Amino acid sequence: MTFKLIINGKTLKGETTTEAVDAATAEKVFKQYFNDNGIDGEWTYDDATKTFTITE
């Protein structure tokens, strides 16, 4: 399955996707992406659209 990440950061904005077997696996991938890029904020997940959103 394809999961999308929408980034609404102070310095970084955009979208990316990842292929994962489930939302929990995608969450781990995206959290690592947050850490690697110094993004910290509030994030949500919409199961209907398989979209994670992080807002700094």
Results as ranks from 00 to 15, higher is better:
Gly14Ile: 15
Phe52Trp: 06
Asn8Arg: 12
Asp46Asn: 09
Thr51Pro: 00
Asp36His: 09
Thr49Leu: 06
Gln32Cys: 06
Ile7Pro: 00
Val29Ala: 08
Ile6Gln: 04
Ile7Leu: 10
Ala20Trp: 02
Thr11Asp: 12
Thr51Gly: 00
Asp47Gly: 07
Lys4Trp: 08
Ala23Gln: 09
Thr53Ala: 04
Ile6His: 06
Phe3Arg: 00
Thr11Asn: 14
Thr49Met: 06
Asn35Phe: 12
Gly9His: 12
Phe34Ile: 15
Glu19Phe: 15
Glu56Cys: 11
Glu27Tyr: 15
Glu56Ala: 06
Ile7Val: 07
Thr53Glu: 04
Gly14Cys: 15
Lys13Glu: 06
Ala20Pro: 01
Lys31Ile: 12
Tyr33Lys: 07
Lys13Leu: 10
Thr55Asn: 09
Asn8Glu: 07
Tyr33His: 05
Ala20Thr: 05
Trp43Met: 13
Asn8Thr: 07
Thr51Trp: 01
Leu5Gln: 01
Thr11Gln: 09
Val29Leu: 10
Phe52Pro: 00
Ala23Trp: 11
Asn35His: 14
Asp47Arg: 06
Ala48Lys: 09
Ile39Cys: 09
Ile54Phe: 15
Leu5Val: 10
Ile6Val: 11
Ile6Asp: 02
Asn35Ile: 15
Leu12Asn: 10
Glu56Ser: 05
Trp43Glu: 00
Thr16Arg: 15
Trp43Cys: 07
Thr49Trp: 03
Lys31Glu: 03
Tyr45Val: 00
Thr16Tyr: 15
Thr44Pro: 01
Leu5His: 00
Thr53His: 05
Thr25Lys: 04
Val29Thr: 08
Thr2Met: 12
Thr16Cys: 14
Phe34Asp: 01
Asp22Gln: 01
Met1Leu: 13
Thr25Ile: 07
Gly41Cys: 07
Val29Glu: 06
Ile54Pro: 01
Trp43His: 01
Ile7Thr: 03
Glu19Ser: 10
Phe34Leu: 15
Thr53Tyr: 08
Leu12Lys: 05
Gly14Leu: 15
Gly14His: 14
Gly9Phe: 15
Gly9Asp: 03
Ile39Ala: 05
Glu15Ser: 08
Lys4Asn: 04
Asp36Thr: 09
Ala23Val: 10
Asn8Cys: 11
Tyr45Gln: 00
Thr18Trp: 10
Thr16Val: 11
Glu15Asp: 05
Lys13Met: 10
Ile39Arg: 04
Ala20Val: 03
Phe3Tyr: 12
